[in-house]
Design a binder for these strands. Sequence first.
DNA 1: AAATATGATCTGTTTTAAAGCCCAGTTCTC
DNA 2: GAGAACTGGGCTTTAAAACAGATCATATTT
Lengths: 171, 171
Amino acid sequence: MSNKATAQRPPVDARKDFGWALGVLVRNYQNASTAAIGEFPHGTRGYQVLIAVVGGELPNQLALAQHLGIDRTVMTYLIDDFVKEGLVERRLNPADRRARIVVATDSGELALAGLQQRVAEAENTVLGALAAEERGLFRTLLRRVACDAPAVSEHDLGACEAVEQMLGSGS
Amino acid sequence: MSNKATAQRPPVDARKDFGWALGVLVRNYQNASTAAIGEFPHGTRGYQVLIAVVGGELPNQLALAQHLGIDRTVMTYLIDDFVKEGLVERRLNPADRRARIVVATDSGELALAGLQQRVAEAENTVLGALAAEERGLFRTLLRRVACDAPAVSEHDLGACEAVEQMLGSGS
DNA sequence: AAATATGATCTGTTTTAAAGCCCAGTTCTC
DNA sequence: GAGAACTGGGCTTTAAAACAGATCATATTT
């Protein structure tokens, strides 16, 4: 009786589901990168915030939050902790004194450089099933998926546009 | 002053970070698939559980939970809700009456078939930046990354082994 | 100047995930 | 049969995160 369904429709294979594979990858990345960065303030999240800060393309905390898809109120104490650790500084934007420009300190840039190496190793471990060229290909495709994604939500779209605008001169 | 760092090290580009791109993809996938499946019991999670159940490869609730990387106590009331909706049934495993075999009802299989179509559309939207062949390539690479991942955690490894054992005859 | 909008912060509430402990029923080992 | 081990389930606690408002300073608009 249940044969009927599996005979009429293509068989369901849980391993082929895109969402499942994505979930496994995210979980593995989380575990591996968390282990790689150790006691860094806010874990993987904090690491990505620091990357965005050092990148220096996001003008204020709000843009930072939207870029990473996290709540703007979270960004406040996340940056607070970074300031406490001496990784970044909050500066007033002379052009718009409502906004705080978040700049990385030398210590922050140094810390990021170290972290990036270790995270890169972790990433390669996570992608261990692929050959070296395939890893590069996968990264490229993933980057395109993320950067050139169609408008799924205005949030991400806005963030992406903002980034692209600012990178127009920065290449 | 900060030019020194950017001159010595390769410039940091937030858009090139693997973790960031992965996060964007996951967020887009979540939004798109959530919209696609509508009021389905436990959202994207529930959808993936149903796939695994219909796939019929996971012997019990524990294996189901490990396969999807969620807590085993969560699986309890997740399956509870599915039973209430008539999507799945809990049967006693005659071979091991400690374990409950979770089987999809005809209604559940039908529901999944409908959902899969809509989710597939959502997935293609999310991957809209890629050409059709590239999408297939990306899916293949992602599947390999997930299925053949090296042992990052014993949890996932065990789940993957279990799946592969049971699929030994099914390809 | 007044009204409105924006960025950051603070204050809560709510949701969610994860972890731990305990119990009941079942199976396996000895 | 006794005891250990395992599955399912309930319960509580903890931490993280999302979410909604309110406040304050500043910018922009009218």
